[in-house]
Design a binder for these strands. Structure first.
Lengths: 313, 313
DNA sequence: ACGACATCCAAGGAATACTTATGGCATGAC
DNA sequence: GTCATGCCATAAGTATTCCTTGGATGTCGT
């Protein structure tokens, strides 16, 4: 009454119609005959009319039965199609992953992972949106992305939205970038002590990224003189190459692009930023997302140090 | 796995999607929240992936969920359509009745009943096929007719197919038909004794119908001299009008047609034929058939004597 | 006439569905 | 900060539905 017919009984009726008899339907279903008989009885009671004529050799559909059979076939087809669709998603013949990643990852590991994912599962539709971690988190929370590659500098606690899960997948060291003409830019890739740069001008970006620099300098015993502001690693290096300052850039950014006029040096004791995969709690139950996670891990593994990841214990 | 998704759970999922939350679906269904939650859980386990994301204010569908919702909507629409179709049959806005009836009924009471039925239920599709009782029985058994008007002469037991139900609906008296020039055809509609016709020539038809005549003559103490054979009451009367014999015809046949050149007289003690409605056992559970039965009874009631019909007790 | 087959009915046991009870988590008001 | 509200999950118990068992009837074919 509330809805239409009982779909389960409708499918049993379909078996009856297909088998041509109640007993035949029971055999097809692996049931006993009265079980099917009772389903038919309930259907007929609800319909208020006979759906089949009981003949000595089986049953014949009435007009109402023929009508119902058409609908039953359509329902069965839909149920099968639903199962098939889910199966296609499970086997990754179909499916969509919407990635979000910060710029230096979007220019390096993420395209490599997308390529790997597409090689493994050509049917998957991968889409990337470049976004800094806070924005990526927003995208995830708003349902506009399924999986994000994010990072946090040492000592920073990313303020993810509730319901998001963050898994560390590696560490990305910060490297000192100097003009080639800088006194510390001696050949040999020798480590540089930050204290030797207390008098230099610095280039830093947004609060989130500048915090890493300030913390490192604080530990080295000075306050950096930040003269220029940008998050763009190409802009940063253009300024540095012209001798307008020095800066810290993560290795991924330098992998993406290193300006000819700069020198890169490690800084002992400088804590790396941590890379994370972030996603809504349930999306790791989605095959396409799981495959994307795997591809990202496979690409990241040789490039970044493992960072307290239990899966890699 | 054997079939597609569980349709019942699919409909519950549809409620979740529509309500936007599990608790909302539970309210809509008049259930408690865990009931719905468990259905969703089972669906997700069978699907092997998350169908919804659990957010603080409710749920959001995943790609798989959106896919499934489309199928769920289609299934629900079909179930509703099935219920609507059956409802149309139950309310006789639609439906088919295939009648079979012997000639004299097909020319008299049956068209009247069809007219009555169509007046009451314009949406019903009534179809008539003229057939003598044995053929009508075959049609019913073969599923080519839903309801038959049949008859049997006194003392005859119709050999209906198994599974057919026969209900007496009235009696149709046999009347003597004479040439107007016949000595017994005196005016006044006076009853005629069969014995006075022992020397006449007779007209009779098939074995089934001739048996009624022979039995009546046997009871009157003679064997009729059957000179001409036809079941057609027009042919019969044409022969009689020309003085080529006498015959017995049922009142329905004479209602359909009485030749100008014949006289009709009652014969005391002549037993009438019984009229029946015959149909497969379950077809009286079909609204259109039931309505046809009612229309036939309503038309027959004033025209034929009730014949041991329990419904008319 | 008997066995094979298809049906229905009635009653009991088993699987499933729903409820109750409880806890976690996020949001918004005081 | 704390409390109230709303959403969801889990676990265990009850209830209902479902299917089986064990009859009996009726028709067909040997």
């Amino acid at each position: 009454m509330t809805h239409g017919m009982d779909p389960h009984r409708l499918l049993v009726f379909r078996e009856i119609a297909h088998a041509g008899s109640i007993a035949g339907a029971a055999r097809a279903l692996g049931w006993t005959q009265p079980a099917v008989s009772q389903h038919l009885r309930h259907l007929e009671r609800r319909a208020g009319m006979a759906l089949v004529l009981r003949l000595p050799r089986g049953v014949r559909l009435t007009e109402a039965g023929r009508l119902l059979l058409g609908h039953a076939d359509a329902v069965a087809a839909r149920l099968q199609a639903a199962a098939d669709d889910l199966d296609a998603l499970a086997q990754l013949r179909e499916g969509t992953v919407r990635l979000a990643a910060f710029p230096s990852a979007s220019a390096t590991v993420v395209p490599a992972a997308m390529d790997l994912l597409l090689r493994r599962h050509p049917g998957v539709d991968v889409r990337l949106r470049e976004a800094e971690p806070p924005e990526a988190s927003d995208l995830l929370a708003a349902g506009e992305a399924d999986l994000a590659v994010t990072f946090a500098h040492a000592g920073q606690e990313p303020d993810d939205h509730p319901g998001l899960v963050r898994t560390p997948v590696g560490e990305d060291p910060l490297l000192l970038v100097l003009p080639r003409s800088h006194p510390q830019a001696v050949p040999g890739d020798r480590p540089v002590d930050l204290r030797s740069l207390a008098a230099d001008g610095w280039i830093a970006g947004c609060e989130r990224c500048a915090a890493g620099l300030r913390r490192a300098c604080e530990e080295a015993g000075f306050v950096p003189d930040v003269r220029h502001g940008t998050d763009d690693y190409v802009v940063t290096q253009a300024l540095i190459a012209r001798g307008l300052g020095v800066g810290l850039l993560p290795r991924l950014a330098l992998d993406a692009f290193t300006a000819p006029g700069v020198a890169v040096r490690p800084v002992p004791g400088l804590r790396p930023r941590t890379l994370y995969l972030t996603h809504p709690r349930e999306t790791d139950q989605i095959p396409a997302v799981r495959a994307a996670v795997q591809a990202l891990r496979d690409v990241l593994a040789p490039r970044v140090r493992a960072a307290g990841d239990p899966d890699h214990g």
